[in-house]
Amino acid sequence: MKPFISRLLGVGSILLFIPLWELIVRVSGLPKFILPSPADVALRFVKALADGSLWIHTGQTLTEILLGLFFGASFATILGYFLAKSYLLESILAPYLVASQAIPIVAVAPLLALWLGPGSASKVLICSLIVFFPILVNTIVGVRAVPAALYDLLRALHATRWQILFKLEIPAALPVLLGGLRVGATLSVIGAIVGELVDAKQGLGFLLKLGDFQYDTSMVFVAVLMLAALALSLYGLVTLLEKKFLKWMK
């Protein structure tokens, strides 16, 4: 009953938000291009949906996010695994990794756009870079936390390297790996948007900028809400993965 009530309260507080928003619009009397009403945004949403543009832009951004997340997470996980296994490799690469963290990815986005052009490559790269570090760190932490006694067990049973990887290391590190993916999923949305804001012909970031230029604030709202929906879906997807694979943790 308890989780049900807390869910009910959550839904209630969100539903309350819309009339509150409407109230603020009416009381303040702000013009539509500064603060559109919920109805304005809903109308704009339907219109963008109907003319197909919302699909195209959302699809573009989602593709960049997924590709960026895929490349960033894969590379971070593989490198993290080897760093976790080798203190030598870690001491060699650590200065670079720490230094790279001192550079705000957002600040180099224009540079990447300049080098890679206005296509989706620069967005995918920014996305990958931004998700890279948290997933790398989580991989290292997760793999290093695999109990030594379980390694002993597998070695006493003459397990091969691959068996140790698949039967021990991956399942043991999975909770921490998925934790990294959860953070990465949220960050990847930011990465794609930063890339698109710098220079793009398509995508929700582009829509955002376009709306801003044309004083079509309702469209800005639509884009922002779409982004929030994307981030939430990705977050939910990771939660689903956790539910499926981490049942044993309850």
């Binding site: 109990p147 379980l150 002993d152 067990l153 003459h158 039967k167 021990l168 981490l246 943790m249």
Partner: peptide
């Protein structure tokens, strides 16, 4: 080798049956 450790040393993500059959899987 069959080894029993001081702490049971089971894989927490595996059920009893899955833990027991690990050596055969390997």
């Amino acid at each position: 080798i069959g080894m029993v450790f001081q702490q049971a040393n089971l894989m927490p993500w595996r059920t009893v049956l899955e833990n027991i059959k690990l050596p055969l899987e390997l």
